[in-house]
């Protein structure tokens, strides 16, 4: 490991320890690391957006490629800046409405495809009289009961309450499995970081 790499890794190790110090309590080292990472990130994104949005989508298309229709979204973008004026701030709402409307419209078919059609297709399984069939039947019952839990137009009491209770139990089993899986992933991240610190210390002392 060269001197430069040793120094950079040393900084990374130090910042890692600063963040870990939060496990004890909020302190000046954690505050330093927190503000450093937030500040660097905000600065990085400002420059990144300047290049990927302003340069690539305004300067280049309009002034270099003469694609003048790019002026229309550029005007919508400029209208966002009217928020700094009390008198003209209302103009920014037009840009926002346009942005949210378009984004929602574009997302709708994809969301319906991924969240409804594909899920329904995957759930329309043939239920046979064997172990695989029993498994499919259990999944189907869990699915229907979970859907009942998210039915808001009927009070959850009586027979319907029983069905929705089975639904929430099914959901909780799913959440528990998801929780365990994610925690295992987080532990892996922790192990990775601890190994990084260990390797750095060993390198530092020439082991």
């Amino acid at each position: 490991m060269g001197t430069a790499e040793l120094l950079w890794n040393g900084l990374a190790a130090l910042l890692t320890l600063f963040i870990f110090s939060f496990l004890y309590r909020d302190n000046v080292f954690y505050k330093f690391a927190e503000r450093l990472v937030a500040g660097v990130s905000a600065g990085y994104w400002t420059i990144l957006l300047y290049h990927t949005s302003f340069t690539d989508k305004v300067i280049v298309p309009i002034f270099e490629q003469q694609h003048y229709w790019y002026i229309i979204p550029s005007i919508l973008g400029i209208m966002m800046w009217t928020r700094f004026s009390r008198k003209w701030a209302w103009l920014s709402r037009i840009s926002l409405a346009f942005y949210i409307g378009i984004a929602t419209g574009v997302a709708l078919p994809i969301a319906m495809y991924a969240s409804i059609y594909r899920q329904l297709q995957a759930s329309m399984v043939s239920i046979s009289l064997d172990w695989a069939g029993i498994n499919s039947a259990l999944v189907t019952i869990g699915l229907l009961c979970s859907l009942a839990y998210f039915y808001f137009s009927k009070e959850h009491d009586g027979w319907f309450g029983g069905i929705s209770r089975v639904g929430i139990y099914t959901l909780m089993i799913g959440f528990g499995a998801g929780f365990g899986l994610t925690v295992m992933g987080r532990i892996s991240l922790l192990i990775d970081r601890v190994l990084f610190l260990k390797d750095y210390v060993l390198t530092l002392f020439g082991a």
């Binding site: 319906m112 495809y113 329904l120 297709q121 329309m124 043939s126 239920i127 046979s128 229907l144 859907l147």
Partner: peptide
């Protein structure tokens, strides 16, 4: 959607039909 789902499962299990699955091909 629940009705469609139940119909899809019943037709797939009893008649071996994939009509409802194809209906949702988008």
């Amino acid at each position: 959607l629940v009705v469609i789902l139940v119909l899809g499962i019943v037709t797939a299990s009893v008649f071996g039909s994939d009509f409802f699955i194809r209906m949702l091909d988008v």
